[in-house]
Design a binder for these strands. Structure first.
Lengths: 203, 203
DNA sequence: TCATTTAGTTAGTGATCACTTACTTACTAG
DNA sequence: CTAGTAAGTAAGTGATCACTAACTAAATGA
């Protein structure tokens, strides 16, 4: 049953993330993680010098996953509004698959104990916002959405849409489908953005 | 320095809420609360049989404050869209004044330990959503916003706006003014909602 | 084959948590 | 004035936390 350090580290990180989903980030104790893996609690400290460094590894994996998901979503999509849609859809899908992500944003580990982690997550959210804003600006130059809108404002509205959907999903004990409801709202918002000038042209 | 039970209970609840703002909900220990008040830790258990019941009292005060703020905001406002604006503005102002509220939504106490609290908050958010939806429906019958929009969908967009603003504010270490940026976004969204048919009529 | 490396264990540490018990002191009604 | 009540204290409890020291056994390379 003995694994290489590399494999074991990955297993520990994955387990922490899974347990953060299931029981909440602040409930993930070293003892609980070790028990789930099937090693003693002390074994974790062979691989990570402290729990904070373990969380840092988790955060790094999450931010990597986010970056990868965005890149994949944008592959071979050139139309600006389709790119916006793909980005939001990817974010919704990722949160649905890894519900710990929004919980991590407000966990004790991130918000209080570890300024570095908070900074890393904030930077990722900022990157998401900037990607949205860039494509929205492109859509604007194509005359697809009104010219007097600030792309960054619209990008904020769209990221808020994702965050709101995640909050309602979390509070509702995950009964509804976050992806479906989120995508439905995205369509409403995108129609609102497009229709004004589009309908003028059509009419 | 001895206070009546009523006064002391109120003082404890207020202190918990203040400390939840300052150090995070999960960091609020009975010892820390007692120390800030200036009594022994055991004294808290004279007034609340358990920490869970203490949190329940805090939640009740918060939901009461929410309800009051909404009622006050709607007083003497009859125009549907102005009511929507007043509601969202009131919510932004309240969160800015009591930043623990969004943190509570994701705290361990609420999301894991205490199903009752989670239910209470979910119900309040639902009430907010329904109030928005009702006024949006009224605006729809007045022809102020497009008829083919589901009022509940638009209400979700608006509550998400508030939640997104709160998240960015919390993660950004509260450097920006949440009320200002939130209200600016609200204006953008409201213009998006109105302009479509308004501009058609004008044009 | 055997020495070295390394993943893992056993059995603790002190700190901190919510909560309890037994006692004490301040207020108040009769 | 005094007896009862209610607020508060001192000093614990056991549980749980992250983390450590000393030891063991499995893999590996010469």
């Amino acid at each position: 049953m003995r694994k290489s350090a590399e494999l074991r580290k990955a297993e520990i990180v994955a387990t922490v993330l899974e347990m953060a989903d299931r029981i909440g980030p602040d409930r993930v104790t070293t003892a609980a993680v070790a028990q789930q893996i099937g090693v003693t609690q002390a074994a974790l400290f062979r691989h990570f010098p402290s729990k904070a460094e373990l969380w840092a590894a988790v955060a790094e994996q999450v931010t990597d996953t986010l970056a990868t998901a965005w890149r994949t979503a944008l592959e071979d999509v050139s139309d600006p509004l389709e790119r916006v849609r793909a980005l939001v859809a990817a974010q919704l899908a990722l949160i649905a698959r890894t519900p710990a992500i929004p919980m991590l944003l407000f966990s004790r580990e991130l918000t209080i104990e570890n300024d570095l982690l908070r900074g890393a997550f904030q930077e990722r959210l900022g990157a998401f916002h900037e990607m949205l804003a860039a494509d929205l600006a492109a859509a604007q130059t194509q005359g697809r959405i009104p010219a007097d809108l600030a792309p960054r404002d619209v990008a904020y509205l769209l990221s808020s849409l994702v965050q709101g959907a995640a909050i309602r999903w979390a509070l509702g004990a995950r009964k509804t489908s976050m992806e479906e409801t989120g995508l439905a709202l995205l369509d409403v918002q995108l129609r609102l953005l497009q229709r004004q000038e589009g309908s003028r042209r059509d009419a």
